[in-house]
Design a binder for these strands. Structure first.
Lengths: 332, 332
DNA sequence: ATGAAAGCGCTAACAT
DNA sequence: ATGTTAGCGCTTTCAT
């Protein structure tokens, strides 16, 4: 593949390469007629200005990094879609990186993005510790953290979902349905959002004057199988529980399976609220009541923040907070 | 952010930039001791060679384009994951692009990837016509088409799933369960795979000596709702049908909903085979019998093919074919 | 309104 | 084994 360069166009149009550059970039100081002529030649030749040459000169690549733990997880996939749409609309390209939840890989990924001189970075990194995160992104240009708080500093923003207040809404909903013994199931201790949701649940239960037993809280991997096993266990040991708030919908689906096996009809014998509202939650039987995460919006808002940082990196903006929304369906 | 360049390292290490380059690239012709010293300095300074400068010089960007219709679709998300993993292992970065099934957007995307001088392209484009596709990728370097055939030419490869033989397996399975009146539901006419599966179904039914009625075939959007509506319709008009092959699992889930509404228990009153094996198919009730698509493998194999093309672009390799696998669960 | 010169950070080719 | 020269394809600065 032999590439058309700016010189080819210049020669063919009988102008200098500056003039071609001006035409391609809508710069001022060029006769409209010349511009048209140049653009016509460029089109005819199939000239596509090299972003790599331009990037070397301008120090801007119109490329962004987007780092997620697992693109095949429907939650992150939606975030990625939201973010990509905003980037595309702004004329930016996105380097997508999977970290598979491995810290070493995350470091390697960030180095690679640095080498590519991305103009900014969107980072979804639930598992790195604050210190790890700080050192990892220190060398990088504007960064937006998704669902993750970090000390404010210039060039860094975060977009969060208010897990604690979401948990409160969920608990109040269960309480309004007459439940008093409410448990919390799932999530891992090293996950930011699991801690937040669990804490929010605790506070809400206390605030509502309901009984609170630490044994009503049980962790699990954030998967269907993890939820099933943990629910089997928790419900066997604590038959007094009449309602469960699950860490996420996958866990909640596992709870549904467990309830079927235990012959505890949902919602009559056990009420259940999930979290995320993944598409499939609406199709299971009974359809899942859940706290809907604004998934695409999370990606969109984060990307918008990133553009603000790119345009004015001096500011250290307030963290943006989005809210989860209660979707009442058949399990409560 | 002030960047460390090769000259900074050279100066600090007391060598020329060429020597730094040799050290960073493991090139021969450098004293091991010098290399170590240089690498130490580079590490100390946090030197990260610019892939954009290197790309300008070498004409290789170690960046690939990955174009999918919708990253939030779990099927494509898995393909993307498989492809990304292989790319990452080979030290390549991936520009991910969503086309949202819009041809104009797909063109714009390909132009952008061209401008970025990607070293290769993985294209999942079920909706573009052959002619559109041909012109769209003509300017681009090595291209691998996923699930899509194209005239063989150098620098172009395809990875396909054998839809027709998969359909045959599904039909034979239903036949072995004693079903004779088998319908086909879902998919659109402008989708390559929908046509292939439908044709495969027809051939298999004929080959098995079963009755074949064109009215037993009905199209629908490839969604749950599309499947539900189409199934309502088809089953009402053709009560003689005892089994259905669905275009994909989403459609099949819609069929399950319709059967519940029509009070036709699955699999006793209607047997059902889906296609894709998305994660949730195993969790619905009854769990879905389906043709499992090798999703991640599709991405992996495609990416491997792409690397082969990149290394030796003269060849026009045979299309690679993968097979769908019958997963028998509760709906048959 | 247009052009000439310089240089972004790197590596290939050629000295030494 | 190391250094020097040149140039990748653009844009910026400064002339004209």
């Amino acid at each position: 593949v032999v590439r058309v360069t700016i010189l080819d166009v210049a020669e063919r149009a009988g102008v200098s390469r500056q003039t071609v550059s001006r035409a391609m970039n809508d710069s001022p100081g060029i006769d409209p007629e010349t511009r048209e002529r140049v653009l016509a030649v460029a089109r005819a030749l199939g000239y596509r200005p090299s972003t790599v040459a331009r990037g070397l000169k301008t120090n801007r690549t119109t490329t962004l990094g987007l780092v997620v733990p697992d693109i095949a997880n429907p939650f992150f996939a939606e975030v990625v879609r939201g973010a990509s749409e905003v980037a595309y609309a702004a004329g930016y390209s996105v380097l997508l990186c999977n970290t598979t939840e491995s810290p070493e890989r995350e470091y390697a990924t960030l180095e690679m993005l640095e080498a590519h001189r991305v103009d900014g970075l969107l980072l979804v990194s639930p598992r790195l510790t604050d210190a790890q995160l700080r050192s990892a992104v220190s060398a990088l240009t504007p960064v937006v953290l998704v669902n993750r708080l970090q000390a404010r500093r210039p060039g860094l923003a975060s977009v969060l979902v208010n897990d604690a207040s979401g948990a409160q809404v969920a608990v109040e909903h269960l309480n309004s349905r007459g439940h008093r013994n409410i448990g919390f199931l799932g999530g891992q201790n090293d996950s930011h959002s699991a801690r937040e949701r669990r804490e929010g649940y605790r506070r809400a239960v206390r605030r509502a004057g309901l009984p609170l037993d630490p044994r009503w809280c049980e962790g699990s991997p954030p998967t269907v199988e993890g939820g099933r096993t943990a629910a089997q266990d928790l419900l066997a040991r604590h038959p007094e529980l009449t309602a469960l708030l699950a860490y996420n919908d996958l866990v909640a689906l596992g709870v549904l399976q467990a309830c079927e096996e235990l012959e505890r009809p949902v919602p009559d014998s056990l009420a259940l609220v999930g979290w995320d509202d993944i598409v499939f939650s609406a199709w299971v039987s009974p359809p899942l009541t859940t706290m809907r995460m604004p998934k695409a919006q999370l990606g969109e808002v984060a990307m918008q923040q990133l553009f603000e940082l790119i345009e004015g990196p001096e500011r250290a903006p307030e963290p943006t907070t989005l809210d989860a929304e209660l979707i009442v369906r058949g399990t409560t």
